[in-house]
Design a protein around this nucleic acid. Structure first.
Lengths: 339, 339
DNA sequence: CTTCGATAAGACAGCGCTATCTTAAGAGGA
DNA sequence: TCCTCTTAAGATAGCGCTGTCTTATCGAAG
């Protein structure tokens, strides 16, 4: 059969499927890829032959021949963050059943690392890339541009033309939190943030803008540290803020982790939440609905972002007309006991 | 240059590197792969040419020509579980710098789904597979066997010959928890578990074995539900247990999530932890060191498991002699306020 | 009845790399 | 000096697919 059996993999090939189905190899190829110019009768014949042989296409050969893989690269700033896990899971759930492979790249909140990942992953000739946000190096942008890989941006929105993005307004979310705390009668409002990526900064901007509009912005009421966010850090930053500004009566944490830590610390110090100080988190992690007191938070559509971004990519790859290049999935303020 | 430029990808190829370096293509190939029979002078010449051109090898062509990719498949039962994220991250950190791609498969605690994933991923001709535990379908085992892909098993240990595994004794961990609670003077001890995978069952077995040895095992003191574990479920199961057995004075939760939920529920019900009931969790998630009261837990070496499993795989792929096929990374009981 | 265009099926070549076989060039011994 | 043996470099032939061009077939139009 094969000229040099030592090189072969042992698995059935398209040629064998074609032979069994009694058609040319290329016809079998087209039949299995749903190319519309193949007679339905032949398609089912080929399908059956493939089934009988247990044929699974060789992705390497496919990629080499067509210069385009069936892989979608997803670049996220962290895996440790529960947030991105849910998004990734959603992306998987859309792409895998449609035959796409998902390659995950974690760039650890580093633009340089992201650039390196892009460079390396482009060698896989991915059919699309899902990116987090818009903040990346010039070189990254050039690479993506030069390789003409379809991109979809997640988590942030933009007005720019020809950019596909799925997310929500981080700034508006910050503003909503500010107005909520103001409505609760709080006036000494602080923003506590860690892991200062673009989105964390946007939330803070929105929060402070709303405070300024209400005439209660005190720029001193802010702690922003670049280190990674964690429960322990939340307690620490809360303690620090309280020592510096004992009169603070409301805090917006850039994510729930920090808020959880602050709740524990408040409990230890015997500080009444929300009476003396109200807390609001961000992301609405599962724990927030159960912690004592239950945490008010912004519920972010992170699963929906993944699903929509993946669907948008699939639509583009299928050549479909995509009416909405910008998908605003919105967020929701979930008011609970902590405010 | 190329015969049919329309088919080309536009990126530099090995042939161009070889031309620039003034060697045959195959020599360039060998030089870049560190095949030892190439003159060091030529190696650096080729390396430089590759650098000048910005050459990145085409993985699809590589895989097709060698019938083996540089991808390692990792199959985990869940992504939602913090536990596996840390393991995955560790695996990534070892494999990616060495040029391996990591393909993640999530089988959602389903043996059938795992089998399907194995079938599909084998088409990628992975150079290795990292598996979670030992519980899988016959067909899965046969597929792995037939394709002769090196496997490393994570999270559990076995005495079987010729099986590479990295983990710790789940049973022993359960027993350690039991003895700890007994030493605290507790006698009405319960096991509360969800997501009943093999490891959760093993922990329970170890726990109950130790209780039986101490003569205090009450088989009624147990709640095991198959549904997914969550903070909310922990509170619920704790409430249920307390109604059925108001005299329970110590609970071992199969993971920290459940224990956190139970702590919140206890706080709401005004039940003193640990005085009336002591709690012990499993995994020692970051939050456990901060929750009020701080949670006693078993610290599992999940990051180390990933690192060691990946290193073991790398060593096998390099053809190195691996002295220890079984790596027991052990666990640690971290005693805190909740017991 | 011929011509033409549309459509379906096939032939062919090549994607970019590596396994394998072959050749060339030294090293060493008789 | 000749011959063998080792070792490095090269030539060749695919790996398993798909893009592209060609050919066959058929109905409609002239």
């Amino acid at each position: 059969m094969r000229k040099d059996p030592s090189r072969a993999t042992g698995r059935p090939t398209l040629a064998e499927v074609a032979r069994l189905a009694g058609v040319a190899q290329i016809t079998a190829s087209r039949a299995l890829r749903d190319v519309p110019t193949v007679d339905p009768g032949l398609v089912s014949k080929v399908r059956e032959a493939a089934n009988v042989l247990g044929y699974v296409p060789n992705p390497a050969a496919r990629t080499l021949a067509s210069a385009r893989s069936q892989s979608v690269v997803v670049l996220v700033p962290a895996l440790s963050n529960q947030l991105y896990i849910e998004t990734l899971e959603a992306i998987h759930s859309v792409l895998r059943p449609r035959g796409y492979e998902v390659l995950i790249g974690n760039f650890h909140y580093s633009r340089e690392e992201e650039e390196e990942l892009i460079r390396n992953y482009l060698a896989f000739q991915p059919c699309g890339i899902l990116l987090t946000g818009f903040d990346r190096t010039e070189a990254s942008l050039r690479l993506l541009e030069a390789n003409k890989v379809p991109c979809v941006h997640m988590m942030e929105l933009t007005q720019a033309e020809d950019v596909f993005c799925v997310g929500f307004s981080q700034e508006d979310a910050g503003a909503v939190v500010a107005r909520h705390l103001l409505a609760r009668g709080k006036r000494r409002l602080a923003y506590v943030a860690a892991q200062l990526d673009a989105r964390v900064l946007q939330r803070g901007e929105g929060f402070k803008r709303a405070l300024a509009e209400a005439g209660v912005l005190d720029p001193a009421l802010e702690i922003m540290v670049p280190e990674a966010s964690s429960v322990g850090l939340g307690g620490e930053l809360f303690g620090r803020l309280l020592r510096q500004h004992p009169d603070v009566d409301g805090i917006f944490f850039c994510n729930d982790d920090l808020a959880h830590g602050a709740i524990f610390e408040a409990q230890r110090q015997g500080i009444a939440v929300p009476d003396r100080i109200a807390f609001v988190g961000f992301n609405d992690l599962p724990m927030s609905a159960h912690i004592v007191p239950r945490l008010t938070s912004i519920r972010t559509p992170r699963e929906a972002v993944g699903k929509h971004a993946a669907r948008l990519m699939v639509a583009r790859l299928a050549g479909a007309e995509v009416p909405d290049r910008t998908v605003d999935l919105e967020f929701e303020l979930v008011v609970r006991e902590s405010s």
